[in-house]
């Protein structure tokens, strides 16, 4: 017999909100329309905690905590928009832009890119660090989809959706540090992947233009993500 979930009250940016005690700060903030940027987090996938954009200040902790991975608690005081946090968000976004070749004007996801949206919303109007300009080649071996690592931000949504929802585990990350890359199988060309089911879930969860359907041109990407909460909900009910 599990004990009933309790309801707690806490403050986010001086707003009194109530939540179930098993919810994360991010969930509660979203329920209350308080903006916290995220890139790796996606409802229906496991918590990853890697983009660090959702960091918030929490009373009783001198460290910044990831809202996606931190549970709420009674009387918690959360701050999502202090000058320190706003500055770090901008810095993290700048770092992401400097890492690969993010050229929005010729990107399939222009206008429907989460990185672009966040940059606009967080006021990133220029990049103060030097660009890295890595040389990365596209994988066009798949008949239906393409991988453009120039736009990849290594959020690993594709890895997680493929593993956790589709059950194929075609995607994974190879290398470490700045050399990390998402790969299919053991770096076989996507088109030759034996495990890929061509379901396309990875393409739809990609926040940028790194994964896209073939045949889409600049700014033609449209993500359909409604399947994800639906699938997880249905599975939850089945279990």
């Amino acid at each position: 017999m599990t004990s009933p979930t309790r309801v707690v009250t806490l403050r986010i940016d001086d707003r009194e909100v109530s939540a179930r005690e098993d919810e994360t700060i991010l969930q509660v903030a979203r329920d209350n329309e308080i903006f916290i940027p995220t890139l790796c987090c996606l409802e229906g996938l496991s918590t990853w905690g890697a983009c660090r954009l959702c960091l918030v200040e929490v009373s009783g902790s001198n460290k910044l905590l990831a809202a996606c991975a931190t549970r709420v608690a009674q009387d918690l005081e959360v701050k999502t928009n202090t000058p320190r946090i706003l500055a770090y968000r901008r810095t993290i976004l700048e770092l992401l832009f400097s890492e690969r070749n993010h050229v929005c004007s010729v990107c399939v996801a222009n206008g429907e890119c989460e990185l672009q949206n966040l940059a606009q919303r967080c006021g990133v109007d220029h990049i103060r660090v030097s660009y890295r300009y890595p040389e990365l080649s596209l994988d066009l071996s798949n008949d239906l989809f393409r991988l453009d690592p120039n736009r990849c931000i290594l959020c690993t949504r594709c890895v997680r959706v493929c593993d956790e929802i589709e059950g194929a585990h075609t995607w994974d990350v190879m290398g470490r540090g700045i050399d990390c890359q998402v790969i299919t199988d053991l770096k076989a060309p996507w088109g030759e992947s034996k495990s890929c089911t061509s379901c396309g879930k990875c393409v739809h969860v990609c926040p940028t233009g790194a994964l896209s359907q073939r045949g889409t041109a600049i700014a033609e990407v449209h993500h359909h993500r409604d399947f994800l909460p639906y699938l997880t909900q249905m599975r939850g009910e089945r279990d």
């Binding site: 660090v129 470490r176 700045i178």
Partner: peptide
Amino acid sequence: SMSESCGKCVPCRVGTYQMHQ
């Protein structure tokens, strides 16, 4: 630190690279 960063989180992955630069 740069070459030993696992590459999971953005600030460590790209930040150590930029500081090294």
